[in-house]
Design a protein around this nucleic acid. Structure first.
Length: 752
DNA sequence: AGCACGCCGACT
DNA sequence: GTCGGCGTGCTC
C-alpha cells in the first residue's frame, strides 16, 4: 500500500502542512487531528486533503491522533473556508483560528495536557429518587413519615417522583426544573432519600413542528408569498421593509417552514448582545431548537453549541453574530441576514476580514439553500444587486395599524445661534418640543454620535491640545475618572492643571459626547428623569437591559445615546427624537458617508411615533440645505439610492468597483513612507490609475507604529481575483528588500 | 503565531 | 564571567 499523506490546516497564518498518515489510521477529510509542529509545539489541525505525494522536505512527521469523534466540518464549510481565505487574502489557518477558537489552545502545553484537554461538556445538577425508595410500598411509607413533620420535603419528593414520569423510577430530572428549594433537597439527600449528581446538560430536541406562529397582515402575507416565489428563481432575495412593518414576522414564518422540513436555519444579526428580546421571542416559538451564538460567549458554551450542532440531524435554528456562519449546520437551507446594511457584518480589525453577509450568500450557494437579506435601508450593494435582477426583491411598505412615519424637522444651528435661540447644544426648536413632550408625559430619545464627555482638551490661549505620546490622536477626557485616556492604546494621564506649553490655567474640555449632553440636560430640565445608553453605561448585557427596561416602563423621560438607541427596541411612548448634531454624519469624506447618514437618521427617526399618533424628529445641523436631508425628510430611499449610485458610478466606487486596501505598518516613519512610495510606483506600472495613495489614515500612528494605506480599485468586468493575486505578489516581492524587513503588509478586501 | 537561535548590556 | 534583551527565521 502506498504511503498516505494529509495536508493539515493549523490555526496559524501559514499554509497547510503535510503530515504522514500512520498505516492503520482511519482518517477522513474535515476531521480534527493532533500533530507536532516545530520542536516543542502541538496543535489541533483540520485534515484538508488526503493524498499520496510526499512533500519535498527531509523529515515528515506523522499525525499523532484523531481528536474528534464527529467530523467537525461539513464539506460546504470547508469550501466556505477556502472561499474566504482566497477572497479575503488570508490563510485557511486564519479562518480556523476564528472559526474554531476552542481548538486554538494556549501554547506551552505538553502533549499529555493537550490530549487530556479534550472537551468536557457543561454539566448541571440532576436530582433522582434513591433506588431504595423506588418501590410503591417503600415510597408510600416514606411519604407517610414525612407528611406531618416535613411537609416541604414531602412536596419536594412528590414533585421529583412526578417529574420522573408516570411510574416510580430513579430517573434523573434537572434541578432547575424543580420548584423545591435547596435546603429541602439537601435535607432529603442527607436522609438518603434522593441523589443529586452532575449530569451533562440535556440536549434532547423537541420533536413537534406545530409552532405557534404570529398571524400575518395581508401585506405581510403578500410579501411572504413574493419571497417564496422569488426563491424559486433566485438563491438570494432582498427584503426591504420600513421600520415597524414587521419583517421579523416574515422571518419567523420562513424559519418555521425550513424547520418543519427538517432543515436548519441561521439568522444573523449585527449585534447579538442587543437582541435578547428577539431571542426570547424565538424561543417561545421554536423552543429548544434555538441556539444563540456569538464570539463573546465563554469558549465552553461555544464548544457545547458547536458539538451539539455537529451531532444534530437538522431542525436547528441558530441566531448569531457574524461568527455563527461557521457553525456546523449540516442541513442549512435558509440564512437570514437581518439589518443587512449594518457595517458590523464586516470584520475589519483582524483576519479573516470577511463580510458575513457576503459569506452567508456564498454559504447558501454552497449548500443549495436560500439567503434572505432584510433591511429598511438596504446597502447600496444589495440594492444594486436587486435592481440588476441578481437578487430577488420584495418590499414591505405598510407599517402596523397604519402607524404614520414621524415628521422630520431640520433645525439650523447657525441660524439659532444668530437669533439667540441656542442654549449650549440645543436649538429652541428642540427645547420647546422637549418641554411640550415632557408636559404631556411623553418620552424623548436624543441621539449623539459620540460617547464620553469631551473628545479632547485644549488650551484656548495657545491652541495646545492633549495628545497621546504613542498614537497620533487627541486624548479623550473621562470626567468620572478625571483622567485623559487614549482610545487606541489605553494610555492614560492626569488632566494637567496648567497648559504645558504656555502655562495657561484655562484648559477646557472641548467637543461634546453623550456624557456631556446628559449633564446639560439635567440643567435644562431639572425635573426630568434622564438616562444614558452608550458603550460606557451599557457595559454588560444586563446593564443594557436595565437601561432599556427603565425606559420601556416609563421610569425614564429622556434617553440620551449613541447608535445603540437606534437598534432593536420599539418604544411605544416616544413622541420626540432629537439628532443633536448631524454635521459629522453629513460632512464625513468617506464615500459611504451619505448612505450611512441616511441609514442612521432614518433608523433613529423610526424610533419615534406611537401607534395612535405620529411622532416628531428634530435634526440639528449647520448644513440644513444638504440634499441628503431632503431625502431623509421624505423617507425617500429610492432617491437617495439613485443619487448615491450615480456618484459611485462616476467616481468608481462600489458597487461599480471592487476595492482592496493594503495597509503598511512600521516603526520607522521615514522608511515606511519610502517603502510605500516605491511600492505605489511599482504597482502603478501594473495597475495604472487603479492604484490610489499612499495615504495616511486619520489616525496614522498607533502604539508607536506608523500606518499608510494603498487602495486598489478594480472596475467590473476585470478579474478582481487576478488583480489581487498580482497585488499580493508585488507587495511580497517589494517587502523582501532587506531595507524594508521591518515593514508588514495586511489586506482588507471590500473595506467598509 | 510561537519558539529557537543568535549576538550585545547589567548582574552573581 | 553568565542571564536575558528581543531581532530574524523556520516550522511538514
Amino acid at each position: 500500500m502506498a504511503d498516505r499523506y494529509a495536508d493539515i490546516v493549523l490555526p496559524l497564518a501559514r499554509p497547510a502542512y503535510t503530515f504522514a498518515v500512520p498505516d492503520r489510521m482511519d482518517l477522513a477529510e474535515g476531521q480534527a487531528v493532533v500533530v507536532q509542529f516545530g520542536a516543542r509545539r502541538y496543535y489541533t489541525g483540520i485534515v484538508w486533503r488526503i493524498h499520496d505525494r510526499r512533500p519535498d522536505v527531509g523529515h515528515v512527521k506523522p499525525i499523532l491522533r484523531i481528536s474528534s469523534d464527529v467530523p467537525l466540518l461539513t464539506a460546504p464549510q470547508r469550501r466556505l473556508w477556502e472561499w474566504i481565505a482566497a477572497y479575503y487574502l488570508c490563510t485557511p489557518g486564519e479562518v480556523m483560528r476564528f472559526a474554531l477558537p476552542q481548538l486554538v489552545k494556549p501554547t506551552g502545553l505538553s502533549l499529555e495536557e493537550l490530549i487530556a484537554g479534550t472537551f468536557r461538556p457543561r454539566t448541571e445538577p440532576y436530582v433522582s429518587l434513591d433506588p431504595g425508595i423506588v418501590d410503591e410500598e417503600a415510597f408510600d411509607r416514606t411519604m407517610a413519615g414525612l407528611i406531618r413533620r416535613a411537609p416541604r420535603q414531602h412536596a419536594a419528593l412528590l414533585e421529583i417522583a412526578a417529574a420522573g414520569g408516570e411510574r416510580l423510577s430513579d430517573e434523573a430530572v434537572p434541578r432547575r426544573c424543580l420548584e423545591a428549594d435547596a435546603p429541602t433537597l439537601a435535607a432529603l439527600r442527607k436522609k438518603g432519600l434522593i441523589r443529586i449528581a452532575e449530569h451533562e446538560r440535556s440536549t434532547e430536541r423537541r420533536a413537534d413542528n406545530r409552532f405557534r406562529l404570529p398571524e400575518l397582515t395581508p401585506a405581510q402575507q403578500r410579501t411572504l408569498q413574493r419571497i417564496v416565489g422569488d426563491f424559486d428563481t433566485h438563491p438570494t432575495v432582498l427584503l426591504q421593509g420600513v421600520t415597524g412593518s414587521g419583517k421579523t414576522e416574515i422571518y419567523i414564518h420562513l424559519i418555521a417552514r425550513t424547520l418543519a422540513d427538517g432543515g436548519d436555519a441561521l439568522m444573523l444579526v449585527p449585534e447579538i448582545a442587543l437582541t435578547s428580546q428577539l431571542i426570547a421571542r424565538l424561543e417561545r416559538i421554536f423552543g429548544s431548537r434555538v441556539t444563540a451564538y456569538h464570539s463573546k460567549l465563554p469558549i465552553r458554551r461555544r464548544t457545547e453549541s458547536f458539538l451539539r450542532l455537529a451531532r444534530s440531524e437538522g431542525g436547528e435554528l441558530v441566531i448569531g453574530a457574524r461568527s455563527a456562519i461557521f457553525l456546523p449546520l449540516k442541513r442549512l437551507r435558509l440564512v437570514i441576514v437581518d439589518e443587512e446594511h449594518e457595517p458590523g457584518y464586516k470584520q475589519s480589525d483582524s483576519q479573516p476580514r470577511y463580510q458575513a453577509r457576503d459569506a452567508a450568500v456564498m454559504m447558501a450557494a454552497l449548500t443549495g439553500g436560500h439567503t434572505l437579506l432584510g433591511s429598511a435601508t438596504p446597502s447600496l450593494e444589495s440594492y444594486a444587486n436587486a435592481c440588476s435582477g441578481k437578487y430577488g426583491y420584495a418590499r414591505l411598505d405598510e407599517r402596523y395599524a397604519d402607524a404614520r412615519l414621524p415628521r422630520i424637522l431640520v433645525s439650523d444651528t447657525l441660524r439659532a445661534v444668530k437669533r439667540g435661540e441656542r442654549q449650549t447644544h440645543f436649538n429652541r426648536d428642540l427645547t420647546e418640543r422637549m418641554a411640550a413632550a415632557l408636559r404631556r408625559g411623553e418620552q424623548i430619545l436624543l441621539f449623539q454620535n459620540r460617547r464620553g464627555f469631551a473628545p479632547y482638551v485644549e488650551c484656548p490661549a495657545c491652541g495646545w491640545s492633549a495628545r497621546c505620546p504613542h498614537c497620533n490622536v487627541t486624548l479623550t477626557y473621562h470626567k468620572r475618572e478625571g483622567r485623559l485616556q487614549c482610545h487606541y492604546c489605553g494610555h492614560t494621564a492626569p488632566l494637567p492643571e496648567y497648559c504645558p506649553d504656555c502655562g495657561g490655567a484655562d484648559l477646557r474640555p472641548a467637543g461634546f459626547g453623550t456624557e456631556k449632553v446628559e449633564e446639560e440636560l439635567a440643567k435644562l430640565f431639572p425635573e426630568a428623569r434622564i438616562d444614558r445608553l452608550d458603550r460606557d453605561t451599557a457595559t454588560s448585557e444586563s446593564a443594557y437591559n436595565a437601561i432599556i427596561a427603565r425606559f420601556e416602563s416609563g421610569r425614564t423621560d429622556i434617553l440620551v445615546g449613541t447608535q445603540m438607541i437606534a437598534k432593536g427596541f420599539d418604544f411605544e411612548r416616544v413622541s420626540l427624537v432629537g439628532i443633536l448634531n448631524a454635521d459629522n454624519l453629513l460632512l464625513n469624506p468617506d464615500f459611504r458617508a451619505a448612505e450611512r447618514a441616511f441609514q442612521l437618521m432614518t433608523q433613529v427617526a423610526g424610533r419615534a411615533g406611537r401607534r395612535d399618533a405620529a411622532g416628531e424628529v428634530v435634526i440639528q445641523t449647520s448644513e440644513p440645505d444638504h440634499p441628503l436631508l431632503r431625502q431623509v425628510i421624505d423617507y425617500d430611499y429610492d432617491a437617495m439610492a439613485r443619487t448615491q449610485l450615480a456618484e459611485r458610478a462616476a467616481f468608481g466606487y462600489p458597487p461599480y468597483a471592487r476595492l482592496t486596501e493594503t495597509t503598511l505598518r512600521g516603526r520607522d516613519r521615514q522608511m515606511l513612507y519610502e517603502a510605500a512610495a516605491a511600492l505605489a510606483a511599482e504597482l502603478r506600472e501594473r495597475f495604472g490609475r487603479r492604484i490610489m495613495g499612499p495615504v495616511a489614515p486619520p489616525v496614522d500612528r498607533i502604539r508607536e507604529t506608523y500606518i499608510v494605506r494603498l487602495l486598489l480599485k478594480v472596475e467590473p468586468g476585470a478579474s478582481a481575483a487576478r488583480a489581487r493575486a498580482i497585488l499580493c505578489d508585488v507587495v511580497r516581492r517589494h517587502l523582501a528588500d532587506p531595507r524594508f524587513k521591518s515593514i508588514t503588509a495586511s489586506y482588507n478586501v471590500d473595506p467598509q
